[in-house]
Amino acid sequence: MMTEPIVSCRGVNKIFGSGELQVHALRDVDLDIMPGDFATLAGPSGSGKTTLLNMVGALDTPTSGEVVIDGQSLRGMGKSELSDLRLNKVGFVFQAYNLVPVLSARENIEFVLELHGMPSAERRDRAREILREVGLEGLENRRPAQLSGGQQQRVAVARALVARPSIVLADEPTANLDSKTTEELVQLMYRLNREFGTTFVIGTHDPRVMEHSKRHIELLDGRIASDERS
């Protein structure tokens, strides 16, 4: 039996601006992300990595072509439906961590679960459990400003994973981290992929991340230049 892709892009184009200022960020991209993929998306600056991640994560919609996430096409979806889709299917890890500064580590995670309508006690237990999984036990009540960059990024990973999304997208997650913390974070994501089968697509040009990649997608001028599995 054929396994269905989690994300499927067909003939995706994305054009920003108009007239002489028009930028063709993605050109006829065809891409399938399969369950359990631990894929890196690489390419020089301006190659379209972030734009493609935004399409795959339903943060943006294509100018033409179609993106289907877990069987749902983004075509014609309103803002609220896209929000629902992101909440239920996608987890995000950002370069700048992007945690809510006034919430503690645990609350940042619980917040996502609350959006899912999970009861308070269950939320709390689930948040503690995931924080333990990412090695932040004992730091639950610290606010982002009281955590190191690596710790904040672990919280961000935990936040992305807590609702058990179909896919986790990470855009340059190690760009602000030192080597040791980068290694720890990559090992963490790799372990989560191995143990729980979580699908990761990581936009990066960090060789330390690419080393662990099972699939390497190279973008150049908005086109997929190569797509290799190891």
Binding site: S83, D84, R86, L87, F94, V100, F111, V112, R159
Partner: peptide, 8 residues
């Protein structure tokens, strides 16, 4: 970011 994580 809140929109990205699924808040409407």
């Amino acid at each position: 970011v809140l929109l990205a994580v699924g808040m409407k």
